[in-house]
Design a binder for these strands. Structure first.
Lengths: 208, 208
DNA sequence: CACAGCTTGTGAAAACCTTCACAATACTAG
DNA sequence: CTAGTATTGTGAAGGTTTTCACAAGCTGTG
């Protein structure tokens, strides 16, 4: 569909949205590409180019309306609807993610939690009960869940992924350090802090 | 110092290293750029180009020695020495990170933990005592810590960052959703799961 | 040793991404 | 209404990254 746009451009759009929300909270009504760039660690030309792919949201001589551009970006990023998310894995990472309020604030609702540990299954987290991961497919279909967060051990993750895609999950945030095999139409984003740390140590080592 | 290399190339190097370690565990002694690429989700040409920036590690007609290339990559990524890391923030994220064994396995040693909550200060986590964040500068200098992981609330993070850089920290992994201001010579990597999720929903929305 | 079969390392080409620079246009003041 | 100032949207230029394609070189076999 539509134009091609790079992964990094999309990530910048998300960043612009965060900046716009900060500006909104601070009472600003308008913003120029210059200001938006400064607060988002990029350049004015980059901001305008990124936006121009999707349309024309500003007024010459004036800039952008904070409120209006925010709405446009939410539309572009697919944030007008809330997303129903399954959290799979109720260990340390799962628990940290469940508690994190930043997801809900952006419309990501964790509507089901799963684990395979009998000691955890049936326990309550907030309003949710921890389900047996064996029931993944049923619950995910029933609750019409679109996104899964995989916070399970690396040995288990491909199996869980297979179940999730059979149940109709179309997007996945994967914390396990392995490249998942997924059917056509399923999108995976990997989170790997070791890679982040190693790109850091690379930079530090280059210093000498 | 040497050549310029892109952030994404460095991240690929880290990925190759992970793949090599898997191959090593599986008993492979040699690997071609073709095989390495297939297991790291890239192309053979890309693998060879990435490596060629740093030297020539393979043998024509044969490929790369798993063991040898692994050693070379650890050298390039700065992983021959263990790194001393401070974990700042003993909340949900901090706790998940502390428990995560993947860091230690790669030579990242969490040698000090900090928090500002009087209820947490003085408590023991494993062998570590949670220090008052007010003592950050002293402890970080004393223990010769080079890297800090910032898992504190967004309001507090710039202050903590300032202390950390005064104490001599040169690399930072930042979990707070804000662009940190740092002195020359300090490198920051941001981790922001909301951006990951939003680049996911962008992809999902494009599907229709 | 010569030859066949692989696989690397690397210039050159292609693709992709960012920056530049300016015409078009909106707002404000007089 | 006009002049002056500000800021967008966008082709074109410049830069970076990825892919291509092939000569060079290693290994094993007869």
């Amino acid at each position: 569909m539509s134009k091609k746009i790079s992964e990094s451009a999309v990530r910048r759009l998300s960043l612009y949205l965060r900046t716009l929300e900060e500006l909104d909270r601070a009472g600003h009504e308008a913003v120029s590409s210059e200001q938006l760039a400064a607060r988002s660690a990029t350049t004015a030309a980059q901001v305008r180019k990124d936006l121009s792919v999707f349309g024309s949201f500003g007024k010459r001589g004036f800039g952008y309306t904070v409120e209006e551009l925010g709405r446009a970006l939410r539309g572009i990023l697919g944030l007008t609807q809330p997303w129903r998310v399954a959290l799979i894995g109720a260990g340390r990472i799962g628990s940290a993610l469940f508690e994190y309020t930043g997801f809900a604030r952006r419309g990501f609702q964790i509507v089901a939690v799963f684990d395979s540990d009998p000691a955890k299954i049936g326990r309550k987290w907030g309003d949710s009960i921890i389900h047996d991961v064996a029931k993944l497919e049923r619950v995910v279909s029933d609750k019409d869940i679109q996104i899964a967060i995989l916070a399970v051990p690396v040995e288990a993750v491909q199996g869980v992924m297979d179940q999730a895609s059979r149940a109709g999950v179309r997007g996945v945030l994967n914390f396990a350090p392995v490249r998942l095999k997924v059917p056509e139409g399923v999108t995976v984003k990997d989170v790997n802090l070791v890679i982040d740390l190693e790109s850091l140590t690379f930079a530090l080592s280059q210093g000498f």
